[in-house]
Amino acid sequence: MFGEGFLRTIEVAALALILALVLGIIFGVISTSNNKVMRGIARIYVEFFQNTPLVIQVFFLYNGLAIAGLRLSVFVIGVLGIGVYHGAYVSEVVKTGITSIPEGQVEAAKSQGFTYIQYMRYIILPQTIKIILPPLTNQAVNLIKNTSVLAMISGFDLMYMADSWASSSLDYGPSYVFAGLLYFMLCFPLATWARKYEERLKRNDTTRTLYDPCEEAVTC
């Protein structure tokens, strides 16, 4: 039972993470573009999803759409709801990464005859990825933890399984401890790696003034 829930949690988390990354990169790049309308769209997406609770969004997909006649499976709701919610956070991370590269580098690259694709590929993105990897990993950890909202709509994820096992056998303690351990096993290596990587980056990086992780919102 726990195994099933654990697998379901991993599946939902993996697919939602892919969706969040795709949305995040698209909207992150759009929000640094020169087009006002595009920037506005990205801004609305980010502000809406960052400033309303995930619980309400998920219940809207579950109850609201069902009443309107559109019944999605809980699996789809999980991937869609959590992916779109975290996409907004990923988009902010990507945006910070891109804007932390000084304008001068683009000018320098252009003067050397680099095309847009070339300077993005060889100059901007390699630096961006290095900078945004720790906050992105933290987002992945938060995403895994947030898959537990599925328990509220009986999504058969780890939290739901643990809760139903607890209430049927009345072994609340062992059931919650075991579920907690499984979540910990998923999140702890990621979170620790992100912290170590960030510390190493700070020690080695001469350009640290560009990006101060202290000022970044790492939570969600």
């Binding site: 933890k145 537990s148 909202v149 939290m159 643990a162 907690g180 979540y183 910990f184 999140c187």
Partner: peptide, 13 residues
Amino acid sequence: EMFRNTPLLLWIL
């Protein structure tokens, strides 16, 4: 580390 790597919902329950 314990609280940061487990879901809030678990602690509420």
